[in-house]
Structures are given as structure tokens and as C-alpha cells.
Computed example of a mutant assay.
Amino acid sequence: MVRKEVSDHVRSWRFILLLALVVLTFFASLYISMSNIRATFTNTNDPDHAFFYLKLLTATDGSMPPFHILMSFLAPLLGITMGFDAINSEQNSGSLTRLLAQPIYRDNILLAKFYSAMLIIATLFISLTLLMIGGGLFLTGVRIEPQEFLRILAFALLTMVYVGFYLSLSIMLSVAFRHAATSALTALGIWLFFTVFYPIVVNLAIRAFLPDAAYLTQSETMAYNELILSIMRIAPGQLYSDAATTMLMPSIRSLGPMSMEQLSGAIPLPLPLRESLLIVWPQLSGLLAGSIACFALSYYLFMRREIRS
């Protein structure tokens, strides 16, 4: 079943087009980063200027966003594209009834749909990671440090988890709705809401209910900022952006507001990988929890679904 699903994904035109878009975005970001990498190395005010391979994913000249920012928009589309018709297309064509007539459990069907898509996604991002490292070695001859390699690998794994969340969401919608167009539009609507409209709603709510910041003390301002960040982190894109930025920029020490007392005496040096992982662990846990919740709900709906009708 997994081999069949992988073959169907690889041969579909929508996956090929989206794959081409991701690869072109990667090479465009890499070209811009390589063009501006000399200016990045001469900027000694940047504490991350010595991390050459991390700068390939974060450096930009302003003509286009960095690669990790672009992936916060493209990764959900990849997950939605590979899962919005996972179940309903099989049922509408009648192949799901013939498939379940065989000695196959229903949960194996869902697992095959999810596992095959994640296998392709993992192959894609690991290949892009190795291609970026190999291209940097070939063009510059700069040796990659072990910490850089581990951070890039952690970024690739984080992107896989982010794609997996929207893949689980789209599979759940394909079980909940009978028509593939309805599930696709619902998944795209959820993605657009959390990407575009949710920050607007949060800002309007802040202006309407929270007091003016000019009349607050420093501790109250930090508490309100922490509350705003907690509300914003309900959006999966915010969780991914925080975690990706922390993994690719070792100088980031905190994702929340810090007082002057906490900043006093701090040495502006990059954090070790272990400390960065501890910072992004809540964001990674949130994305994993959302993926598991969507997959569990799709399992519940699919087990109670009448297939023969």
C-alpha cells in the first residue's frame, strides 16, 4: 500500500508542480545568499556571521525573504496538496470499498496514506539539505562545522513536522467531507486564517481590550507582551517561525520578552545546540501535538464512517 501511494504521489502533476516550486525557491534563496555572503562575513556586529552554512538559509539582500520564511508559506501547501483527497477520492471512485473487502484494517489505510506522504517529504528535505551543503562545499571550499550540520538537520526535521501537521489536517478533512474540492477549500481556508487573518484579529482584540501601553509599568508591559505572544503561538506558522529562526540563528537566547536585568551581563555569543533545542522544545511539542490530534480525529471519524453508501 505504501509503495502504491508513493507511486501515485510521484506521478501526480500537482505534486510535480509544487515540488518544482519548492526547488526553485530553494535555489533562488541559495543564489541570493551566496551573492551576499561576503558582506555577511565582514559584518562583525552580527554574532552569527561566522556560521557560513546557516547564513545560506537566512541571509538575504531584501529582494526576497529568506528560505525559512518562504517555507512557512510553502510547507503548508505541500502538506495540503498531498492529503486533501486521500480518502474521499478513493470512496468516490469506488476503490475504497473494494480495498476494504480485502483483509486490510482501516487504520492501515490511514497509516499508509500518512506514511507514504511523509516518506516523500522526508526524502525531499533531506535531499535539499545535502544539496545545499554539497553546493557550499563545491563553490567555496569552506568546511562545515558539526554544530552547523546538526542545526541544518534539525531545521529539516522541524520543517517535516510542520508539513506533517497540515498533512494530518488535510487527511482529517478528507475523511470528514465527501468531496475533494470541499476538503481542499477548507484546508486552504484554515491555512489562510492562521497565516493572514489571525494576526489581524489578535491585534484588533489587543487594541479593544488591553490598556494603553503608555500607562503600564515595565513588569505589566512584559506580562502583556508574554500574553500576546502566547495567543499568537496558537497559530502553527508562528510556532514554526519561532523554532526555525532559533535553530538557524544561534545568537537568539529567548523567544519572549526580557527585562534589562536579565540582559545585563549577558555575553553576545552563540548558544550551543542543546540550549537552542531546549528553547524550541515547546514549539516542537505544539506542532507534534497538533499533528497527533488531527490524525487521532481522522482515525475516529474513519472508523465510524459508512463506506458502502
Rank of each mutant, 00 (worst) to 15 (best):
Met71Glu: 02
Leu111Phe: 09
Leu130Cys: 15
Leu124Val: 08
Ala112Ile: 05
Thr60Gln: 07
Ala75Asn: 02
Arg98His: 08
Arg98Phe: 12
Leu131Trp: 12
Leu139Val: 13
Pro76Val: 13
Gly79Ala: 07
Ser72Gly: 08
Ile121Lys: 00
Glu145Asp: 14
Pro76Asp: 03
Leu128Tyr: 13
Pro66Ala: 08
Met132Tyr: 02
Leu128Val: 06
Pro76Ser: 11
Ala59Gly: 05
Met71Asn: 03
Gly83Asp: 02
Gln102Lys: 12
Ala75Phe: 14
Pro66Ile: 04
Met118Trp: 11
Thr97Tyr: 14
Ile109Trp: 01
Ile121Phe: 15
Gly135Phe: 12
Ile69Gln: 01
Ser116Asn: 04
Ile80Cys: 03
Pro65Met: 06
Ile104His: 15
Glu145Val: 04
Leu78Asp: 06
Met118Tyr: 14
Leu119Gly: 09
Arg106Asp: 05
Lys113Pro: 03
Arg98Pro: 13
Gly83Asn: 05
Ile133Gly: 00
Ser72Val: 02
Phe84Arg: 03
Leu137Met: 15
Met118Ser: 14
Glu145Pro: 05
Asp85Ile: 04
Leu119Tyr: 06
Thr58Met: 09
Gln102Asn: 07
Tyr115Asp: 12
His68Lys: 06
Ile109Leu: 15
Thr123Leu: 13
Leu70Ala: 11
Tyr115Thr: 11
Asn88His: 10
Ser72Glu: 08
Ser72Cys: 06
Leu150His: 04
Glu148Arg: 01
Ala122Tyr: 02
His68Tyr: 08
Ser72Asn: 09
Gly136Ile: 03
Phe67Arg: 00
Asp61Arg: 08
Met118Asn: 05
Tyr105Pro: 12
Ile121Pro: 00
Met132Cys: 05
Asn92His: 09
Phe73Lys: 11
Gly136His: 01
His68Thr: 08
Thr97Gln: 10
Asp85Val: 07
Ala112Trp: 04
Gln147Thr: 07
Thr81Met: 15
Asp107Gly: 09
Leu111Ala: 09
Gln102Pro: 06
Ala86Tyr: 00
Thr60Phe: 01
Ile121Cys: 14
Leu110His: 00
Asn88Arg: 11
Ser127Ile: 15
Pro146Phe: 00
Phe67Ile: 10
Gly134Ser: 04
Met82Tyr: 14
Leu131Gln: 13
Ile87Met: 05
Leu110Tyr: 05
Phe73Arg: 12
Leu74Glu: 01
Leu137Gly: 08
Leu70Ser: 11
Phe138Lys: 13
Ser127Ala: 11
Gln102Met: 14
Arg143Gln: 13
Ala86Asp: 07
Thr58Pro: 02
Asn88Lys: 13
Pro76Ile: 14
Gly135Val: 05
Met64Asn: 03
Ala117Gly: 09
Ala112Thr: 02
Thr81His: 10
Leu74Met: 10
Asn92Thr: 11
Pro146Met: 00
Gly79Asp: 08
Ser89Ile: 11
Thr140Cys: 12
Thr58Ala: 07
Leu128Pro: 01
Ala101Leu: 14
Glu90Asp: 10
Leu150Trp: 04
Met64Gly: 06
Leu78Pro: 05
Ala75Cys: 09
Ser89Gln: 10
Leu150Cys: 07
Gly135Asn: 12
Ala75Ile: 09
Leu77Glu: 02
Phe84Lys: 01
Thr129Asp: 14
